[in-house]
Nucleic acid binder design. Sequence first.
DNA 1: TTGTAGGCGTTATCAA
DNA 2: TTGATAACGCCTACAA
Lengths: 332, 332
Amino acid sequence: MKKFVTIRDVAKAAGVSINTVSRALNNKPDINKETKEKVLKVAKELGYIKDATATSLRYGLTKVIGVILEDSSNPFYSEVLKAVEMAARRRGFNVIFMNTEKDYELEEEAVRTMLSRRVDGIIIAPTQEKSGDIQLLMKASVPFVILGVHFDEIELPEVYSNDVRGSYLAVSHLIERGRKKIVYLSGFLYKSVARMRLEGYRKALHEHLIPFDQSYVFEVEEGVENSYRKMIEIIESGLEFDGVFCFNDISAIGAIQALREKGYLVPKDVSVVGYDDIAFAHFIQPRLTTVRIDKQREGEQAFELLYEMIKRKEIVNKQIVLDVELVVRETT
Amino acid sequence: MKKFVTIRDVAKAAGVSINTVSRALNNKPDINKETKEKVLKVAKELGYIKDATATSLRYGLTKVIGVILEDSSNPFYSEVLKAVEMAARRRGFNVIFMNTEKDYELEEEAVRTMLSRRVDGIIIAPTQEKSGDIQLLMKASVPFVILGVHFDEIELPEVYSNDVRGSYLAVSHLIERGRKKIVYLSGFLYKSVARMRLEGYRKALHEHLIPFDQSYVFEVEEGVENSYRKMIEIIESGLEFDGVFCFNDISAIGAIQALREKGYLVPKDVSVVGYDDIAFAHFIQPRLTTVRIDKQREGEQAFELLYEMIKRKEIVNKQIVLDVELVVRETT
DNA sequence: TTGTAGGCGTTATCAA
DNA sequence: TTGATAACGCCTACAA
């Protein structure tokens, strides 16, 4: 089991030396045409398949990139991941991915694994709880791109979306719909994304002369269940509100469920806006108004930035900020 | 950029030979305790990270498996894929995945790439249009597991769900709800899954003494849009029906959308059952009645079967058929 | 145009 | 207990 044909085997069968085989296989010029054809024929007959492992070792390049994210089955990330894979493949790269489950230890372990695999580059969506692994990456001098996150303190290659603008658009839209008391179901504020979205929220309120009220902002762990429960809690607390801006579509779905159960009509009584525009945002009922991030583009851009670094063999300290779009549907 | 510390560097810095370093790193017994500690210390100081590429070449084992599927962002596959990755990691394996976009050429190319990468095993969800790549895999004598598909003609290691039973349950349930004219929005029948589900459909009708009518079976390409359009078509054709059994949840969503647009109430006028129980099945409104496949288990089982083959170094010609469960919600 | 030899980073065999 | 050496499969100087 698992005995592969080597160039040595091909060489012997074709009656030439191993590097004549190598030359034939790699389209080198310095080889006789007939020899080449013969070698290629023999290689095919024997079912030769080049060992990328050996080539990697020889070249010091694996043509593999690593992708590290919290949950590859999440409808947002799964689309980004797919886009990365497709973009990578177009350039002859394969991708190894690892899930961190939002666990920093797993994230750091994933980084070490990728480094050990000698991937040519890494795309990572860090949890932002700690950033020791990012330090590790910087020291390792392996090209990497931060995905979906922006670090204020250090300048790093990043691809993320313009979420200040996104949430500004979302909240302004709510206000234009006549909503004045807008709950923000936020993610944890140690995450740059949550902070940016909070900033946009505040900006929109401010521009519309609505005072910011901290008691309308709730930091809630991600997941439908969590936002569902938090929404129930908010309703039961008696807080007055007529709009809900959600950290993402998933949490919007949870919120809408809670609202419905408590007898609120969406959007008649309460308007809801989500974020991300995952595929299901326009299949749920009522169709979700949300802020669209172009996930395919995000994945592609992340790979292309990484690729540029791999090719140029140097850090390209560029922050690519993707534009974002409000998609008005039926929940507002 | 990208200069890694090698055991050679460690050896020099520690004043020992390279294989003393190797011994220390790999917890070999025949090494002096102090030497070992010193080596480990130096290795850590220098930031040594083992090169898995070299180890792979040496051992003839990469500790990488390949996963080939049509669309890693599909809510069904993305969950299975994640489960595979998690299971693999527990055993010290990493995973490279490739999307085929239901294109046989890409699928075959993916197989070649995986072979070239010398992955220790492959999990593949084949399109079933052609199967030359499966032949290739068999010849290559690399362990592989077929995911979500059953081949009648050849006995191969497979993990798939009991879809005859699943659709039998679904259709029986529709009948018990008083439905008699049940449309089957099928996938293409060259796929084993579609055939199995058709069989269950027929079986349920037969047992309930409802004659099978070919004109109620529609082969439709996957995707919400396609099932949406087909459903519109069916309605406009004037066909009488009171139930719709869908190939999967995605197609159920499309069908429900069409029904709603055409003024049908679900489930009052028409009952609808989906298949897969993707995460969103219970977020859409009305909540979708569907047949649940345990996606996590499917991924785990696929990996474990593969792992068994890798460990035993021989084909384990086992077909693992996962049980399936009817989840009654609000569309029936 | 072709072949020989060395090396990529590891690990295993054998000898010291 | 330790060290020298060969080998995994490939590619590239260099030599022929």
